[in-house]
Design a protein around this nucleic acid. Structure first.
Lengths: 247, 247
DNA sequence: CCAAAAGTGTTAACAGTACACCCATGC
DNA sequence: GCATGGGTGTACTGTTAACACTTTTGG
């Protein structure tokens, strides 16, 4: 804000105040499906409806701090664990009537988490919190359907040219698990040998873990384990086949 | 905001209020350099410093409406013209102390404009408004250096996989002008014949304009004219050479 | 004629695709 | 043995990259 029209003695209370909140699209890959963490609202408006977790930004915290705080509260994870999760600002939603009570501007974040988190618990005024397969829930409260759709689209696109997929995996994972992330989010099947070569040929995407391989659900040859590497960008990108959006 | 802790009878004025503003990183390509539209602040804080144009979001408008309104005011363009310009939400900046006066959350937008706009005029409490080559200005007010750097990085990345470059060009342009956009933003030289083929091979990127070609600054063979096409995505992407960020 | 920029053509290198095939494990 | 998933090899194909060459303008 540069051409601020507020002089030094400006009355901060002269206008109808804005509230600032965060909303979280928390995604994971579970059982070959994309899942979303949703809470059931316990209060009006939209009591009984599913909604994205979120809450008010406190007077002395940034929106990102607020997002991590809310994420910790909803998932029941420690602050230390939440600090390591992938959290990314999605965009800000500011339509004047998006909340019937008052003017609320919401900064939306996307969180990508592995599937090995403890079960979420309802907290605050949320009746319950659950992982639901993407698309199986009815219409969400407020404009959360749109936020969630935007998050899904962004994640799908970012898998192409970043190393983001590892954020869905536990600290040590197999290339099969990593490939499953792509296949689930994109809704396509990828050629296993080519996927393997592509990932290993990208410096810093993954790094091999010393030690014995892991059995993959009992079936098949044990697979080598990898950790997420230090790279964030993916050059050249891993384009999804056919330009299918699978949205 | 789903787990809103504000009941129906919530006192909107109980907390220190948040102000919501927009900041605009308005970019153009002029004389082989990336230029930014900046305003000189006329008031404290940061009086005399350069800053991004912007201002308060009004009680009944969205942040995008506010951004277009501010853009029209700063550039002196009509609302109709501004409505057609490329405007894109960058991200939201919400550090508690980013404005010394009060808690201000700012939604930043990036605008890409052609070089044929009228000269900007100072307006409001801005002493003046000018196009300055990117990087030649000193430190900007508030956290605007960071916002501007984020905008530049985003634009550079988006040129790779979207048709965004046409937003820098006037309604009718030559392929040489389009190539100059890429070369200027990326800071590299591109092979002319290959660039031409790549652009023409992408359906909907550009469409040929009937009629006589245009002389290119007097020198050289006249070039055919094109308009921006209907496509927005660029498949496959046009990767910048060497992964050089040229930031 | 020369310089400059548009536009066309050609070829080698590379990356992506589609397979065939072997390995190790559970049942 | 058989099914399943990991891992290696390889030939085919399309795109990219590099560069030679022609065309049309101004000086």
């Amino acid at each position: 804000m540069s051409t601020a029209r507020a002089p030094e003695g400006y009355d901060k209370y002269a206008f109808e105040p804005f509230a600032v909140t965060v909303d979280l699209a928390v995604l994971t890959v579970r059982e070959q499906r994309l899942h979303v963490l949703l809470v059931e609202r316990g209060q009006e408006p939209y009591a009984g409806a599913w909604a994205l977790p979120g809450g008010f930004v406190l007077p002395r915290e940034s929106s990102e701090s607020a997002a991590r705080r809310e994420l910790a509260e909803e998932t029941g994870l420690s602050d230390a664990t939440v600090a390591g999760l992938h959290l990314e600002q999605l965009r800000t939603y500011s339509e004047p009537d998006r909340d019937p009570r008052m003017r609320v501007v919401s900064v939306a974040y996307t969180a990508l988490v592995p599937d090995d988190l403890p079960e979420p618990r309802g907290g605050g005024d949320a009746a319950q919190a659950r992982w639901l397969p993407y698309g199986t829930h009815g219409p969400l409260a407020f404009d959360h359907d749109r936020i969630l759709a935007d998050a899904r689209e962004r994640v799908g696109a970012k898998l192409e040219y970043t190393c983001l997929a590892t954020a869905f995996c536990p600290p040590e994972f197999t290339l099969g698990e990593l490939r499953e992330v792509y296949e689930t989010v994109w809704g396509v099947e990828l050629d296993r040998p080519n996927f393997r070569r592509k990932v290993l040929a990208t410096p810093g995407f993954v790094q091999a873990v010393e030690g014995p391989p892991r059995l993959t659900g009992g079936r098949g040859k044990p697979a080598a384990l990898y950790r997420a590497g230090s790279a964030t960008a993916l050059h050249p990108p891993l384009l999804r086949p056919e330009g299918r959006s699978s949205t």
